[in-house]
Amino acid sequence: MDAKRRAVLSITLDTFLEQEFMAVIFLKQFQNLVEEDRSKRKRAVVEALSVLRPRVNIIRKSGTEWQIMLDMDDHTFARHFRISKTQFEVLKGYLQEGGLQSDHNHGLPPLPIAKKVLMFLWYIGNQNCFREISDKFNVSSSSAHRAILQVLTIISTLGWAFVSWPKGCEKRVSATSFQRTCGLERVIGAIDGCHIRKQCPWVRGVDYMNRKSFYSVLLQGIVDAKGRFINVFTGMPGKVHDARLLQSSWVFQEWQERMGEYRLLGDSAYIGQDFPFIISPRRDNGALTDADLRRNTDISRGRFIIEQAFGRMKCKWRRIRDLLNTCTVTIAKIILAACYLHNFAQGASIGCDEHPDGCPREDDANQ
């Protein structure tokens, strides 16, 4: 083969290889366009389905293993829920007798009674919102609100199981204890009012502004020598005077039948009022005798027990320290529940484990 023919063949081969290379590149580009178009179509289908498909909120809860709370040792359980495990079972029994049940809602699994009681104790013993409680116990916020309100409604009707007026022998025992404490005879209790902070209501909000310049609901409590409530009365606006609060309660209406020969210790709010069953201090106008001053000191020493009772209750059942964003109807139920649980959880102890020097703390302004 001569040189001219070889040159022609070489040029022809180079042209063919170049065209073959260009064909491979075109084929790859075409495949990429097809794949890109297919990916676009797939994304379009997914987006269309996401629009047409009903949205389902996936909420992940951290409290899926809430049952382990029931397996805590007694000390840890009491530290979290403010009562012992034995007291928890007794309280659960009271609530079941009152009508608490495990019920269904919108096809969801039923809430066990134990879970409802645990949520209630956590709610009233802390200041967590319903969102935090729902996360801790693996329920929706609405279910947590419904269950806690159900328990509150039931326990507020069970006052007979937790708070009762002393009978004959109990009065004598309490009178003896008060006499040892303050030296005054025939005293079976101490009475005082306590402010529970709340937000300003829409209707007649000015009535709830108290003399300490915050909005509150009043609680009237009477305690025995052990610091246990023997009578509670609540629901009146914070602007109401303690004496007016007493006149609105059944204690004032039935004091002759209930008190007999015994008396209660009260502070200066009851001075000059028609309360013959209350021993109140004399006003210090600069002309008090030594006997009057000693008597005032004895009354103050005896009344200290109710101030401590209010402090311990607010310390243990911390929900009542601040009831903002709570409707007025529910506030009374919460206050009553705290008073009942104060008696129920106290037992034989009249001290506070967290504050051995006494409650309330110095920065507690809403006493």
Results as ranks from 00 to 15, higher is better:
Tyr215Val: 04
His80Ile: 11
Arg146Trp: 11
Arg82Thr: 09
Met69Val: 06
Lys4Phe: 08
Glu18Leu: 14
Arg204Ala: 14
Leu121Cys: 07
Ile334Ala: 05
Gly272Tyr: 04
Phe252Glu: 06
Val8Tyr: 11
Gly238Val: 09
Gly189Lys: 00
Val8Cys: 10
Ile271Phe: 07
Glu254Met: 08
Arg244Glu: 06
Lys4Ala: 09
Pro109Ser: 11
Ser280Trp: 01
Phe233Met: 07
Glu257Asp: 10
Ile59Glu: 10
Ile350Lys: 05
Pro110Cys: 08
Leu265Asn: 01
Asp267Phe: 04
Thr15Ala: 15
Ile320His: 01
Gln87Tyr: 02
Val217Arg: 00
Asp135Ala: 05
Ala190Val: 07
Tyr123Gln: 03
Ser249Gly: 12
Gln19His: 13
Arg131Gln: 14
Asn296Met: 03
Asp224Ser: 07
Met22Gly: 13
Val329Trp: 06
Arg295Gly: 04
Lys85Gly: 02
Thr153Trp: 01
Asp290Thr: 10
Ala3Ser: 11
Arg228His: 09
Trp122Asp: 09
Thr234His: 03
Ser62Asp: 11
Arg228Leu: 12
Glu362Gln: 09
Phe88Arg: 00
Ser50Thr: 08
Gly99Gln: 04
Gly168Tyr: 08
Tyr94Phe: 15
Gly311Ser: 05
Thr64Lys: 06
Ala23Arg: 14
Val46Pro: 01
Lys226Leu: 07
Glu36Ile: 06
Pro276Arg: 03
Asn126Leu: 11
Lys316Glu: 03
Ile148Tyr: 04
Ser349Lys: 04
Asn126Ile: 09
Ser156Gln: 06
Lys4Cys: 04
Asp71Gly: 07
Cys327Ala: 05
Ala287Ser: 15
Tyr340Cys: 09
Pro237Gln: 06
Phe229Met: 05
Ala345Val: 10
Leu95Pro: 01
Arg303Thr: 00
